[in-house]
Design a binder for these strands. Structure first.
Lengths: 206, 206
DNA sequence: CCCGAACTTGGACAACTGTCCCAGACGCTT
DNA sequence: AAGCGTCTGGGACAGTTGTCCAAGTTCGGG
């Protein structure tokens, strides 16, 4: 029996707690920025006592590593079935980018979290390699999208997919950051459409 | 006479101190990341006593505002005479981008500082507008570069310069961040060259 | 029914943070 | 010489930070 008026203490498995804390950290960073992500703030958001933090994670950095992995793989899963075929390769690419963009505008926090995590990982020796793996995942996801797009439209890429994938990541990253700053949705869509048209020129019928 | 063995205390004017502190903050953030930019760390880097900080700045945020302005305008000044004419518009654009890229690889700290500042400003209400002005400066600089490039090569842009400028900022931003993570210089140059070629297709003889 | 493992919890720790004060030192004017 | 703004710099402040502890509660298996 708990000491609190007969209510049972909520007992949560350590792995569930980890998930709760990771999700809470995501919400905090997304809404208030990386600097606000203190252990106490995260625990408060998760409704957990402070001591629960270090019962589940050896350190705050360990939480950040897991947060990065979870967020990146959520992004990849969402993109796995994010290919939209509309006529030829050009329109399909454009539509796929537009659909992805809709998810960004609908949930900008994810991008805020990801960019904050990247900046942080670049300077924290204990997180060395985390940012690299993060961007490798981006590139793999982009390459997969481009490949299935080409397959579905019956074309092949005339330049290495890895190169196109990097261009895709570069543009999506850049568009997102610019939009986070000035929220100019029209400009974002224009840039994305122009980019889709350019990349489409690198396809040749197979 | 100073109390330290007859050596004179270095007396620095408040405006010189401001400059010293701003430069010190730049160095600290560039080398150790935004989180390391504490008042004490900055003062130590500047060789100034801690109290000098709040003699020159009302708060740390005020330092950040000035750091942003100084860094952005240094970037703009460097880019003002950064147009390189080599044959036609296409090669000239490519060369201009490559020259700019050389400055990034030579001094990555500037980009680290700028991205950190952006992320911070996005969540600090007292810095509202700083990030916006920062990106407006980016866009103006890019538009100016594109205009003088077109002038020098005797062409006009067939789409609004503002749109091309945003594309330029998007790509340079994205390329920089990706490179900061994986330091793949070849990939960066490839993307920049491809982008230069694309933008060049938006020029028509005047 | 009881034992040990899993889990919770408030409180504590030392270190660090941004900010402020104030007595003093300096150098310019009169 | 005397006064006065400008600048120094040590020390202090209240608050916050990441981390850890020891004592408690709960639960599944013997």
């Amino acid at each position: 029996m708990s000491k609190f008026g007969g209510f049972r203490v909520a007992r949560v498995s350590a792995s569930d707690r980890r998930r709760q804390l990771v999700e809470a950290a995501f919400r905090v960073i997304g809404a208030e920025g990386f600097a606000a992500a203190t252990t106490r703030r995260i625990c408060a958001e998760a409704g957990a006592p402070v001591a629960a933090f270090h019962y589940c994670f050896a350190s705050k950095e360990e939480l950040f590593v897991e947060l990065t992995e979870v967020t990146v793989s959520a992004l990849r899963d969402a993109q796995a079935d994010g290919v939209h075929i509309v006529g030829g390769l050009g329109p399909s690419l454009r539509e796929t980018l537009r659909q992805w963009w809709a998810t960004v505008e609908a949930a900008p926090e994810r991008e805020v979290v990801l960019t904050g995590l990247t900046h942080h990982a670049l300077h924290e020796p204990s997180l060395a390699g985390v940012a690299q793996r993060q961007y490798e995942a981006y590139h793999r996801t982009a390459a997969a999208t481009l490949s299935s797009l080409a397959d579905a439209c019956g074309v092949t890429w005339s330049v290495p997919v890895a190169q196109l994938a990097r261009m895709l990541v570069v543009v999506t990253d850049g568009v997102t950051i610019a939009w986070l700053v000035d929220r100019d949705s029209d400009a974002a869509r224009t840039v994305l459409d122009a980019f889709a048209a350019q990349v489409a020129t690198f396809a040749s019928p197979s």
